[in-house]
Simulated scan of single mutants.
Amino acid sequence: MENKEELLSNLYTVRQGLIFIYEKQISLTELENAKRKTILIQEELVNSFGDGTKPVSENLLKWSFYAVLMGALGNIAKFLFLGLWGEGNVRELFWYLVASAVLVFLIQKKMRQHQGSWIGLGIFISLFIVLTTPLNTIYIAIKSFMSIDILAAIVFSIISVVVVAVSLILGNLFYPRWVSFINQLIDEENRKRIEDNEMRVEEYNRQIKRNEEIAREKEQCELELNQATQVLSVFGQGWYPKDYYFMDAVDFFIASLENFKADNIKELVNLYDDTQYKATQLAYQEEMLRLQQDQFINSQKMVELLRYNNYMQAMQIGQLEAIRINTAEAASYLKNLRVQEVHNHYYN
């Protein structure tokens, strides 16, 4: 460099190129976030295409339906039998019937293949509650026969047979109608599921197209970024230190030169290193690499970190030497780049 004025002018030209690179890197960060978002949406949509449930044994649900009737009739029979001696418990009958209604509700949920482990658990608990009385009645009948209590054995046997027989008769009568009603509900849910899936497929395809658009935008952005980097390499060849092509360093160089803290590029580099900003740059570059591994990159934090990123170091030597222009052409190219002015608030 012939003098400080020429050095300062060239530093501003380098800064122009670095601002352009800085802006393109920010654009790439935003595009990468958009890409990761589309991929995440696609994965969520794929997972939502199926409801994830397994087929339910129809026989199991059929006998559960019979158990509902047996439980309800058994408790009604118990209430009426005890009522003959004035000991019928209305509250107990009410809660047993509520348990029967809950069991019916849970069975239809299971038949419609709704998700939720609580449904299976609820069916098990409800079955246990509603079958307590009829199973206990059968147990008393058997115990009475074994103890040769003929009267009790006959009474409880008759009650047990009536409860089981009526449950089977009513079950055969109403189960097909109940299944038909449930199937109508299932058909309606399937129609909604198909409509939802069609909408999901449409959204999935839209996300694929968006991902393709992002890929094209990234390709163009990287092309412009690499071209600017190549030109900047040509312009700085022989006078600008290759390890200091980042915003924080050039801002420091310009501010130090304007404030008469140094007279040439060597003094500027030494001054920068002496103030330990170089150590800060290395730490920020490590943090930036960690940030890029996150599911979504913190764009605001990345803007700060990119001030310390030397994109030139990420380029291969062959890429930097691929362009064939002279220094004057490189200077003209850099000065005519369209950039947003990034004011130096760090070293003024």
Rank of each mutant, 00 (worst) to 15 (best):
V130M: 09
G238Q: 00
M146I: 15
L61Q: 14
Q237G: 02
M146P: 00
V179A: 02
N205C: 07
N136Y: 09
M312C: 06
V14K: 02
I142R: 10
K35G: 01
E267S: 06
Y96H: 04
M70A: 15
D273P: 00
L31G: 00
W63C: 01
P241R: 05
F235K: 00
S160K: 05
Q184N: 11
V56K: 15
F105N: 11
W95D: 10
R15K: 15
G50S: 15
S126P: 06
D149G: 03
V231D: 01
L106Q: 07
V102E: 08
S57D: 14
L291M: 09
N264Y: 10
D248Q: 10
D273W: 04
S64R: 14
S299P: 07
L45M: 11
K109R: 13
M288I: 03
T280M: 12
V269W: 09
L127S: 08
L306F: 07
A67V: 05
R36M: 11
M315Q: 12
Y175V: 02
Q293N: 14
Y175E: 08
N344S: 11
V68S: 00
D243G: 07
V161M: 13
Q276F: 03
E219C: 10
K266F: 14
Q295E: 09
E202H: 07
A314P: 01
E258P: 00
K301F: 02
P55F: 05
Y346V: 11
V269P: 07
G236T: 08
W178Q: 11
R210C: 01
F260C: 03
N270I: 06
Y308L: 03
E23N: 07
A249R: 02
Y311N: 01
S299F: 15
D263E: 14
K62T: 15
L225E: 02
R36Y: 11
E58F: 13
R177E: 06
M111W: 06
W178R: 10
I21L: 09
E32M: 11
I297H: 14
L257P: 00
